[in-house]
Nucleic acid binder design. Structure first.
Lengths: 199, 199
DNA sequence: TCTAGAAGTGAAACGTGTTCCTATTATGTC
DNA sequence: GACATAATAGGAACACGTTTCACTTCTAGA
């Protein structure tokens, strides 16, 4: 580390710094999982991670950065787990729906965490563009792999399709976490959208 | 009005109450238009509308309710203006794109207002479901009318298509107001999505 | 080993959404 | 017109994200 800059996500610090960073992200996920966006209070995160409030802000410049970074880490783990499985389904639409169903079910199994991460995603501004983009790439890869398993050739259309499905997914998640639609409605809407787009 | 309930949106109060309500919404739009979500500060709204802070909260239980209600009013006005025009374009996709372009341009002409209203929309929870639903219906009607001008017969597929386009639109707006994509990228993404869905 | 600068601590303080409370003013009923 | 009740004003107070600052501890290089 040089100068007075904060500890950026892609720089390598000392072991102590890496551990602090992980502790902070762990505390964030734990609090989010227990009580959602509102429960991730900066003082509480600092206390649970055993760092001072000022230190927390040195590592993450805002609550949104903190949550989006935590989201990216969780998403990466989930995606790498998913990547080891074979995807069931005979058509691209079936496989995409299968993947989305599994992922959506995972999210709905931890509603508070989903609430926190979804809201953070929606509130993230330009300064978190890098993390947001990383998540978007993971999602795109996940969906294109479901559409064309076994190949790495991805057309522009495929990417556009993946983005549209991602958009619908995000909107559906927002509607779900804000209590405006049920889990069943969310799933049904997603499935319907995929069949419309991939017919 | 009876008992100690607040002044609900669909109940009819006295003239003074209606006028206060309108003044509050006017102040909200004015402040949002000048400085976006952050500039809509409850104390500032109260002052500009010439009501006490407590009164503001009696009319609208939260900043989100306030903004979503203001959004619904603006959207209704815009939609009724749009409804009087004939829509250009030879295919459903062309007409939908034409409508979205005009509307998106309108929003982008007042970025601060769009910022405030988009963020409010994303943050709205169940207690604002009614207002959110009203906006969704307006959007659906706008899009189905663009797809099939002159008829009122709307299939389930048409509604599903309109919802998907609405979802993509919302995601694109969020990306735009948070500075993660430019106006041009937003427009291009929307157009591409519509052509994918309505091909 | 010594030392300068970076990193961390602990706590106070500020801004804004939200709540609460008391005094004052409208409003509708007899 | 007098009264009961609802509505409003005015402002204090609280919660949480964020900033700031003085002080202490760690760490890397001479």
């Amino acid at each position: 580390m040089s100068s007075t800059n904060a500890v950026a996500s892609d720089e390598i610090g000392s072991n102590a710094q890496r551990e602090r960073r992980e502790r902070i992200l762990d505390a964030t996920i734990a609090l989010a999982s227990k009580g959602g966006f509102d429960a991730v209070q900066m003082r509480a995160v600092a206390e649970q991670a055993d760092v001072a409030l000022g230190t927390l802000y040195r590592y993450f410049p805002s609550k949104i950065h903190l949550l989006v970074t935590a989201l990216a880490r969780e998403f990466e783990r989930a995606e790498s787990t998913l990547a080891t499985r074979t995807i069931s389904g005979d058509t691209p639409a079936d496989r995409v729906i299968s993947v989305l169903r599994r992922t959506t079910r995972g999210l709905q199994g931890d509603p508070h965490l989903t609430d926190a991460l979804t809201r953070a995603f929606m509130f993230a501004d330009k300064s978190a563009a890098q993390e947001i983009h990383a998540v978007g790439m993971l999602l795109t890869r996940m969906l294109t792999r479901a559409m064309h398993p076994g190949t790495d050739e991805v057309s522009d259309d495929d990417i556009a399709i993946a983005r549209v499905i991602g958009d619908v997914w995000l909107s559906a998640l927002v509607a779900w976490v804000t209590g405006r639609s049920t889990a069943e409605e969310t799933a049904a809407h997603m499935e319907r959208a995929v069949r419309l787009i991939l017919r």
